Amino acid sequence: MFNWEGVSEFVAVAEAESFTAAAKRLGISTAQVSRQISALETRLGTKLFYRTTRKVSTTEVGRVYYQHCRQVLDGLEEAERAITHLQSTPRGTLRITAPVTYGEGTIAPLLNDFACRYPDLTIDLHLSNNKVDLIEEGFDLAIRLGKLEDSSMMAKRLGTRAIYVCASPDYLSRFGRPDSLSELDAHNCLKGTLDYWRFQEGGKSRNIRVKGSLRCNSGHALTDAALKGLGIVQLPDYYVQPHLDSGRLIPLLTQFTENDDGIYALYPHNRHLSPKVRLLVDYLSEQLQNKPV
């Protein structure tokens, strides 16, 4: 392996034609420069400089060595500039996975905006409600919602989402409004993939088992059923917020709302985040934390 000791000092002296000026340029002592040059000449078995009290100049061998060393250092400087450019202007491919509905409505538009900022990037977005293996399937990042399971993944919290229990005015006029968690047992609760709904009571999370006449793994379908007065739903804001704003759905049991439902970016443990991934995570965090609820 090539020994780099003394090369930077040699080039600095050759260009400055002075040990003192070279030391100042490198931010080290003149004595250190002199020691490095002497060690380099010993290692190469040749004299690189003519030294007089008034001037330092390269020998014939020194001039040849300087030309080669200068090219090598120029290449290293270009490599550093290239890496710096990559960090400030990300390029390459970013593979991201996200849940289907949240990915379509929120993550995809943000990624499109991100791609407009950095046209050298290629975005590969995979929308799935399945928990994919990031390492095995080659993803840089996963967007996950709600309570995180224990895993070997690292997680960064990007923001929060609101979860609402709600029903249509028509349903409430016919069946009444529940004011306590125990009253849910008397209502038609339209279920998703789980048999229970999550609440917060007395500062603690609480799961309440619910029952009803409809079960579906589509939030859009459950929203439609609630709008048509079929029952009560518990759904994230991105399904029901427009209907809450318009009054077509009425929020219920708001005093028991669990207010710590997170949105997370997951990436493999012990893997150093590349600059492009870190830039995307920071961008998503900024956008989602500033997103109006």
Rank of each mutant, 00 (worst) to 15 (best):
F2A: 08
N3E: 10
E5H: 13
F10Y: 11
F10L: 10
V11K: 05
A12W: 04
E15G: 00
A16I: 01
F19E: 04
K24F: 01
R25Q: 15
G27Q: 13
V33F: 06
S34V: 12
I37A: 02
S38W: 00
T42W: 03
T46K: 14
F49I: 02
R51A: 07
T52L: 08
K55I: 07
E60F: 10
V61P: 00
R63I: 11
Y65T: 05
G75R: 06
L86G: 05
Q87G: 07
Q87S: 09
T89L: 12
R95V: 08
T97D: 10
F114D: 07
H126N: 08
R144G: 02
L145F: 05
L148A: 09
L148S: 05
D150F: 05
T160R: 04
T160A: 06
A162R: 09
I163Q: 05
C166L: 04
C166P: 07
S168G: 03
G176C: 07
G176P: 09
S180Q: 14
S180C: 12
E183K: 12
C189T: 07
C189I: 11
D195T: 08
W197D: 00
Q200W: 09
E201N: 11
G212F: 07
R215S: 15
R215K: 14
N217G: 13
H220V: 13
L222G: 03
D224C: 08
D224W: 00
V233E: 00
L235K: 00
H243Q: 10
I250S: 07
G262T: 10
H269I: 08
S274I: 01
S274G: 04
K276W: 03
R278G: 02
V281M: 14
V281A: 03
D282H: 05
L284Q: 03
S285D: 07
E286Q: 11
K291D: 03
K291M: 13
